[in-house]
């Protein structure tokens, strides 16, 4: 029993310490120091790796999720004779929930794990230590551009996901199943509100992007610099960021759409 309490205490303390360290990393790389001009090319490069290279998986997933939503929505709504509402259903579920959440999960798997592995490998091959010895702060040089790139890319990817999804659903519902395209779009436009739906979805995307990149960067920077340590850190990035995204999604949804 005492042993158990000790273990519990130890784990709690080490988790708290890890959280503190991650906050410190975030603070030192982003908040405390303004981005110098020199960072711009680095940022471009990271946006390329984090954003542009994630584009394909986002577009393909968005397309298929939209098509599935269109198909499912049609078959369910057709039972009530209101298949015209499929546009509304697809757009609301995409803009409010699916686009930010699925994009964040894919982003964690595609970009987050790559970030962790890259930074972890840099640590293992002493590149981070070497930067420090050259007199360059690795938090500013390596971590900060990656964090900023994550914040910038996630909302953009989410928007792209939503648009492709809506378009994919239209493809199925309008072109294939033959819903009148006017009622598809008008129904959608009448039920989706820019401020309360699109902007809230965007806010979710920003929050998720922030959390996922933060976790990925921290796990890489704090990993045990061995091949086993890096693989564990990569796994932790995906698991933790997925859980964080899903948990935060509930909280944000409750704040935005539920009258709590």
């Amino acid at each position: 029993m005492i042993d158990f309490m000790q273990k519990l205490g130890h784990r709690t303390l080490s988790k708290l310490a890890a959280f503190g360290r991650s906050g410190q990393i975030l603070f030192q790389s982003v908040v405390a120091k303004p981005a110098p001009v020199m960072m711009f090319p680095l940022l471009i490069k990271q946006i390329y790796f984090v954003g542009v290279l994630s584009l394909i998986i986002i577009v393909v997933s968005g397309l298929f999720i939209g098509m599935v939503l269109g198909l499912q929505g049609y078959t369910i709504l057709a039972d009530y004779g209101s298949e015209e509402a499929v546009g509304q259903m697809v757009a609301l579920s995409l803009v409010r929930e699916l686009a930010p959440v699925v994009t964040a999960l894919l982003f964690a798997g595609r970009a987050g794990s790559a970030l962790t592995a890259e930074i972890g490998l840099m640590k293992a091959t002493e590149q981070l230590a070497s930067l420090e010895m050259i007199g360059v702060d690795p938090l500013r040089r390596i971590i900060a551009p990656r964090l900023y790139a994550g914040f910038i890319c996630m909302p953009l990817l989410t928007m792209i996901f939503a648009v492709v999804g809506v378009w994919g659903a239209a493809l199925v519902a309008v072109d294939w199943l033959g819903i009148y395209s006017g009622s598809y779009w008008v129904n959608m436009q009448q039920s989706v509100d820019f401020m309360s739906d699109v902007v809230n979805g965007l806010i979710k995307a920003v929050v998720f992007g922030f959390v996922v990149t933060w976790i990925a960067v921290y796990q890489g920077y704090d990993c045990v610099p061995t091949s086993e340590g890096i693989s564990q850190a990569t796994t932790r990035t995906v698991v933790y960021s997925s859980l964080a995204v899903l948990g935060l999604d509930f909280i944000l949804t409750a704040l935005m759409f539920g009258d709590l």
Binding site: M122, T125, E126, Q127, S130, M133
Partner: peptide
């Protein structure tokens, strides 16, 4: 200046 065991060149 420091020469690291692994070289630590920026890849």
């Amino acid at each position: 200046g420091m020469l690291f065991q692994s070289g630590a060149l920026f890849t």
